[in-house]
Write a protein that binds this DNA or RNA. Structure first.
Length: 272
DNA sequence: CTTCGTTCCTGGAAGC
DNA sequence: TGCTTCCAGGAACGAA
């Protein structure tokens, strides 16, 4: 499931395939993937556009067009954007962008929960994008900023990490990993964290996200980058997907519980 | 305002 | 073996 490190790797791998290319045609195989505007206006608004830039904000991938329009993609659980030659549709293809160099950009999605948008210049209709919190990397999430976020929230600390309006880009995998690395119990009230615990958690979060990017993302199941390749970070996880297996620090069997409505794996001994 | 439960969706795993 | 049921989870939404 593409979280910040995975979307960042999609961005990096797609960039060389897309920069400067025109989009000649858009074929939509499943209309409900297009959330704004209508599927028809989405196709018509993109066709003929030229790609200026490929960037990212939280888990959103942003493709800037020379026309000042912005193509926005959110992969949710199983979406992928894959650059390929002019061949047949890959499995679960939902949208095809035909590029001016003869190649294609495919949006594929097994569970079809992802979303594509086309925003006009200055148009800001995506609530989730508009209300995103600070980026955990790029120095935006300072110690003071993180402490302030934790201090004013009474919900479980894991729930705050997952709240995109609090911090951008964190999903279930990296939330569990950060909490494990910091030694913090996921169900702890965010406002109850000591300043030292909060700072440990902030550094752990930045660390696991940086490691995820360096390892080209976590391919637990479906994730693929812009070249259709899997990442390596699933080989370096402390807790996610390891329930019942021994904690890598202390050897105790990792526990599993539902926290903030999400499956959560943690070490009952190391995390306090 | 925050927090929490429900809903969407499909493939794979678990259970009988 | 083969069918049914459950589960994975990001975020929008509505209720409290």
């Amino acid at each position: 499931m593409p979280e910040l490190p995975e979307v960042e790797n999609i961005r990096r791998t797609l960039r060389p395939h897309l920069l400067g290319r025109g989009i000649a045609d858009v074929q939509i195989y499943l209309d409900r993937i297009i959330k704004w505007p209508s599927a028809k206006d989405f196709s018509a608004g993109i066709a003929g556009g030229v790609i200026n830039d490929v960037s990212r904000r939280g888990k959103y991938l942003l493709v800037s067009l020379a026309s000042q329009k912005l193509l926005v993609a959110h992969m949710r659980l199983t979406g992928a954007l894959i650059a390929s030659g002019p061949g047949d549709a890959p499995p679960y293809a939902r949208v095809r962008f035909s590029l001016s160099d003869g190649n294609c950009l495919w949006y594929t999605d097994v569970r079809t929960l992802g979303a594509l948008y086309l925003l006009g210049a200055g148009e800001n209709v995506i609530k989730g994008l508009r209300e995103l919190g600070p980026e955990p990397i790029d120095g935006q999430l300072t110690a003071a900023c993180f402490a302030q976020i934790m201090k004013k929230r009474s919900a479980a600390v894991k729930g705050v990490l997952l709240d995109q309006s609090a911090i951008a880009g964190v999903g279930n995998i990296y939330a569990d990993e950060a909490l494990a690395l910091a030694g913090v119990m996921p169900s702890r009230k965010a406002s109850d964290l000591s300043p030292e615990e909060a700072e440990r958690l902030r550094e752990a979060l930045i660390g696991v996200i940086g490691q995820g990017i360096a390892n080209r993302g976590t391919s637990f199941r479906d994730y693929k980058d812009g070249d259709g390749k899997k990442g390596d970070n699933q080989n370096y996880l402390l807790v996610y997907g390891r329930r019942g297996q021994p904690c890598l620090k202390c050897g105790a069997p990792l526990a599993y519980a539902r926290v903030a409505g999400r499956g959560t794996t943690y070490c009952p001994r190391c995390q306090k």
